[in-house]
Design a binder for these strands. Sequence first.
DNA 1: TTAAAACCTTAACCTAAGTTAAGGTAAAGT
DNA 2: ACTTTACCTTAACTTAGGTTAAGGTTTTAA
Lengths: 148, 148
Amino acid sequence: MTEATLSVGRVAKRCGVKVSTLHFYEQKGLIKSWRNDGNQRRYKPEVLRRISVIKAAQKVGISLEEIKLAFLSLPDSRTPTVEDWQLLSTNWQQMLDARIAYLQKLRDYMTGCIGCGCLSMSKCPLYNPDDVLATQGTGPVILEQAEQ
Amino acid sequence: MTEATLSVGRVAKRCGVKVSTLHFYEQKGLIKSWRNDGNQRRYKPEVLRRISVIKAAQKVGISLEEIKLAFLSLPDSRTPTVEDWQLLSTNWQQMLDARIAYLQKLRDYMTGCIGCGCLSMSKCPLYNPDDVLATQGTGPVILEQAEQ
DNA sequence: TTAAAACCTTAACCTAAGTTAAGGTAAAGT
DNA sequence: ACTTTACCTTAACTTAGGTTAAGGTTTTAA
């Protein structure tokens, strides 16, 4: 194997993930490989960054589906540049900003609402089920109708 | 049925959840009921607040397991007071503060690390798989993003 | 050259947080 | 009285993000 191709085990070790995870990501369309004569997967070193980005994004709560979508913005024909990656992460940063702001809002309501007993379903984002709940539920990101 | 007892359908409607969810919560030990002569569930009105609190906590990314644990601090023999509930939510507030701070840290690393290519597994919290906080419970907290 | 290590595929399994369906009983409204 | 609605239980199914196992092939190292 030349310097420029990596086996699945090598990629797994370098990224700190299991081989099965790489199979899984490939099946989900998040990474790509080609096969050698013996039908074994081979990867470009570029895959290492993809996997690192996947792991980083997951850490901040971005789903594989969202990550896959974001990866669509990466060039197909050439290795992504620093600028390509930076654009991608900038978008996520903005999402994160919104998420953080939302969490802060909920935190501020937390003690007040749980303690006071108002249970104001209509006004309080903590109790209002229409104020998008933490749907681990189905489908892609449901954007919230922010009240106020 | 007197004023002081609620059927499962009534509770479901007032809380905006499905009957099956209430069965599920009971099975998980998050709420309690007794049975009438016909083997149907009956609830104290107190259950309404429990369910609201469950929903509020879930919204900020707290798992049912953690909620159940927190509920252990509530008195068994009497209806929880405002103070009981406030203590509980104060603990969660502190957890939320930590979570928010962590997310902010990750956000600050986001553009820099994804863009720069350092991929420093040892130093960067974005890339360090051993950096635990994010994976409390099962997987990252997925919160919906606030629009606008 | 031969044994071990790495790889392949398919399928089943796992957790969380429920939902849906099936088949039967109780309560409520007319 | 009768019909509809609400309720009961058990079991299977759902999604996300993988993991584990089984059985077979390829690479690599001694």
